[in-house]
Design a protein around this nucleic acid. Structure first.
Lengths: 341, 341
DNA sequence: CTGAAAGCGCTAACAG
DNA sequence: CTGTTAGCGCTTTCAG
């Protein structure tokens, strides 16, 4: 495949040096800084390198504290979410779309608990196995920003509210879209709008809840009951059951994810309630399925892929030494279909 | 966080050695082989290591040809497929579910072309940046098995037919399910069954086509027309248009992916054709959406996650030096719903 | 069983 | 501008 592979082992920098009639040091300088070498020998060295099909060893470079061209993604969630959840696959897709053009690789690690999570960040970076991190799922009192700061690791936080950490942040701001949704509901005569949300320890879940509350108040109605559950069909179904059991039943439910809303559909159906006639329903994410449910689901589209690509792009820029904006915001988009009246 | 972090830098093996009153060599032996050291000093060394919170440097180990605990996944497809395609996100989910329990990380790289693909495999492994590979999307005349063999890289091929390479293979065998589907169609009176498939350069696409052909012949009907397109909604829509333009129109279409089938739905609908009345439709994958389309889509369920987990498990076993079976087969499963009569 | 020493492939500081 | 020299942190001989 590659030219010059005479022996079994790959060529080292010494081979290149020998062939170019210089020393390792010269090769290193020529090919890294491009400085400290006359353009003549530099060319000779470059030649020798391609003839030998040489490329520097990641390990040796890492041992000298050089960046490897990798970014780390450590995820403290069960790996199944890649399969179920709307977010991660799209997010990853966004990341890869910029990395693939930049000769960078992604190092992914799913971890079960906070302790492993911390240890993983630490090892990955202390050894410069990754050049920096994309941090997602920021939680209330999340210790990662402080730890990463301490490690001196470059990082960008993705999907968290502005100012939630002192790292550059890509924010997913759905405030306007959620406000639009609530207005739509209120205009349709709804006064009691419930909210079903995922893990309240997640900053983005909290944020969406605030937006819903604020929008409700601003529209002159009291925020209805709130239920929590996992971001899955089952989680949504269970939360819906709890809501239906409430003494004062709401007339609309805003779910924190489309999957949860779909779980709601089945419970509402079983209870003989029609959508949106007896209960208006709205989701969040706008997954592919949302336009195929019956009735089609009104939801807030969230730009998962863009979050990934913007995060990756920003991190790459930072790694190149560029100044990073404290925060970049991507807006959500209200998708009105038929489930919310 | 970690105990013993007095200074700014992390402890090295020398620190551990000093604290235990031995030399680096002894520490290395004690903690790796566990041999060549008296159990007394071994314990002392272990103590010192935990007190210092020491863990070996990836880079230094890699430089000595030791495995890092990483497996590589290089994908020659546009990164968008993570978002659209049913396969990759689930597959990755399966991989991660076994890796997360084994302290292994995944190194992912999306590449645009065959040349970059080859170079990526080579660099990643020559430098032992990854311990082995999971290879997917095997193509006709794929050069990767030979190249990986030449590199001496451990690998398991996933989702390809048995015997398609000399690497251990996790096969996704849908022959029975496809046969069941064709029988179902033929029993429903269909004599002309078309097939829409994705990239014919992919071995798995070819394989499914063969299974369909064979099943048709065995059921006593001639295999109908075949159209190719990308594995997307648009790809399916376009292929469907071509089929509808055919002089002898089939009465059933078997699509190589659910997404393609959904693309078919809209074209058929636009043409005023009812499903399954005027045209029976079947898909492949059984994505979440499949049971929500109208009519619900009859399809062949494929075990994407299991493919990932089985592949990862097998590769890990191989890396531990265990003998690997030449081939492991996961069967598909026919999901009869309403779109195919 | 243990210590000493060489070396993995590269970078960076220092002389010349 | 170029060569030489130390290391980076670890593993692995090889003596003792």
């Amino acid at each position: 495949m590659t030219a010059g592979r005479t022996g079994r082992k790959r060529p080292t920098i010494s081979d290149v040096a020998k062939r170019a009639g210089v020393t390792k040091g010269a090769v290193s300088r020529a090919l890294n800084n491009g400085t400290g070498v006359s353009s003549g020998t530099r060319e000779r060295i470059r030649q020798a390198a391609v003839e030998l099909g040489w490329s520097p060893s990641y390990a040796a470079r890492a041992l000298n504290g050089k960046p490897l061209g990798t970014i780390g993604l450590v995820v403290r969630r069960p790996p199944e979410i890649l399969d179920f959840d709307a977010f991660f696959a799209s997010f990853l897709s966004g990341i890869e779309s910029v990395l693939s053009g930049e000769e960078h690789a992604t190092v992914i690690r799913f971890v079960p608990d906070a302790h492993t999570e911390a240890a993983t960040y630490e090892r990955l970076f202390n050894d410069r196995f990754v050049d920096g991190f994309l941090v997602t799922d920021l939680r209330v009192d999340d210790e990662r920003p402080a730890m990463l700061r301490r490690l001196g690791a470059p990082a960008v936080v993705v999907g968290a509210p502005e100012g939630s950490s002192d790292f550059p942040t890509i924010t997913n701001d759905s405030e306007d879209a959620i406000r639009g949704l609530v207005r739509h509901l209120v205009a349709g005569g709804h006064r009691r709008i419930a909210h079903v949300q995922g893990d309240p320890g997640m900053l983005h879940a909290l944020q969406r809840r605030w937006h819903w509350e604020k929008a409700a108040r601003d529209a002159g109605v009291d925020p209805g009951p709130v239920e929590y559950g996992s971001y899955t069909i089952e989680g949504g179904a269970q939360a819906t059951e709890r809501i239906l059991a409430l003494p004062e039943r709401p007339t609309a439910i805003f779910y924190g994810s489309d999957l949860m809303a779909i779980g709601g559909y089945s419970v509402l159906g079983d209870a003989g309630l029609s959508i949106p006639g007896d209960m208006a329903v709205a989701g969040f994410d706008d997954i592919a399925l949302a336009s195929f449910t019956s009735p089609p689901l009104t939801t807030v589209r969230s730009k998962h892929r863009a979050l990934g690509s913007a995060g990756a792009r920003l991190l790459l820029d930072m790694l190149k030494g560029q100044e990073a904006p404290a925060s970049t915001t991507l807006g959500g988009e209200l998708q009105i279909r038929e489930s919310a009246g």
